[in-house]
Design a protein around this nucleic acid. Sequence first.
DNA 1: GTTGACGGTGAACTAGCGTTCACCTATAAT
DNA 2: ATTATAGGTGAACGCTAGTTCACCGTCAAC
Lengths: 188, 188
Amino acid sequence: MIDEYKDKIISFYQKNKRMPVYTEIMKLVGFKSKNAVHKLLNKLIEEGSLSKDNTGRLIPGRSFNEIPLLGLVEAGFPTSTEEALTDTIDIGNYLIKDKGSSYLFEVKGDSMIEEGIREGDLVIADKKGEPKDGDIVIAYVDGGWTIKFLKKKSGKTWLEPANKNYKPIYPTQELKVAAIVKGVIRKY
Amino acid sequence: MIDEYKDKIISFYQKNKRMPVYTEIMKLVGFKSKNAVHKLLNKLIEEGSLSKDNTGRLIPGRSFNEIPLLGLVEAGFPTSTEEALTDTIDIGNYLIKDKGSSYLFEVKGDSMIEEGIREGDLVIADKKGEPKDGDIVIAYVDGGWTIKFLKKKSGKTWLEPANKNYKPIYPTQELKVAAIVKGVIRKY
DNA sequence: GTTGACGGTGAACTAGCGTTCACCTATAAT
DNA sequence: ATTATAGGTGAACGCTAGTTCACCGTCAAC
C-alpha cells in the first residue's frame, strides 16, 4: 500500500520535475485529509524514501532520480527479495561532472571501433580541463572535426584512431582540441 | 548578467533537487526585494529557461536537466555563437523508458567486445518486455548469469557472444531471460 | 469484552510564499 | 534638458501550504 503511494509520488515527480504539495498528494492517492498525507510523508521520510532539507521543504529521495545498480552481470538479480539493493546511481550525475561545459555528440564512422565507440553512439565531451596523452578528444584538425585518441610525446601532438584500417593523423596545419570525451552512451 | 542568475538557479536545482523559492533566489543572486526576483523570473520564463505549470508553480526548464546535443562529431562546435543549440537531451529520460523495471549491471569479461560492450561498462536492462531474436539480454543459463545476444530460430532459443573466441551457448538445462539490455554507458 | 494501535477524516491556525503597488535611480533615447 | 525604460527597493496583502489537535472506525492483542 505504502509503496503504491510512493510510486505515485515518484511518477508525479518524474512528470512535473517537482515534488507535489499536500493537496496534490491527496488527489494522487485518494485521501480526503491533509493530515493523512502528513502521516504518510512522515512514514516515507522515516524509511528514507524522502527527506526534508534544513528549511523543512520536501525533497526527493534517492529512488526518485536513481536506479539500482545490481553489481556484476555474473551476480544477476538478488535472490533474497529486498536486501542488497543498496547501491543506486543517478545516471546524469554519474556521467556529467561539470554541467555547463558538457556537450553531446553523435558519432559517425568507425574510426574508434576498437575502443568500443560505434557509429550512432553519443559521446559526452567536456570543454573544460587539460587534455592529456591518451585521452579521447573532439578535435579540429586540418580543416575537419573528428574524435580520436590524443597522443602527446616529446613535444609532439597527434591523433590516433582506434581502428587498424586508419592511420594516425599528424597535423599539417592546426590541431585544436575542443573537448575531452568523458563518457559514451548507446541506446538499443 | 541574467545568465549568471540563471546559472545560480540551475546550480541550486541540481544541488537541492527542487526549485528555490523567492527568498532563496534573493539570497542566491543578491537581491533585497522579492519583487526584483519576480521580475527576473518573468524574464526567464519569457525566454523559456523556466516555466510555471498550470497551478502557477515554478518548474525547471529544459536547461535544468538536459545538456546540448551538437549533432555529429563532424559538425563540431557551432561557430555562430548561439543559435543551433536547439537540441538538448536529458540523459536519464533518453536511456530509461520504464523506470521501476530498469536496472544497471556492471559488465565483466569480454564476451560482448565485438558489440562494443567492454569490461567495466554499465548496461541498462529492463525486466519488462518480450525478448526478441537479436536482443542483447541478461540471462540465467546453466547455473550462471551472463550477458549475450539472444537467438531464436525455429523454436530453438540459445545465446551467442559477440566474440569469436567464445562459442554459442545452447542451454542444456534452463535458459531464463531476466532482462533486455536497453543501453550501455561508459565513463572515462 | 476491552484496550490500544493504526489509518484515516475534518477543522483550525500560522508562517511565509507569490503577487502587486508605489516609488526610486541610472542610463539611453529624443 | 527632458523623457522613457530597465532594474531595483520596500512595504502590504491575500492565499495556501504544512502543521497540529480532536475525533472516529477497524482490526488485532490481551
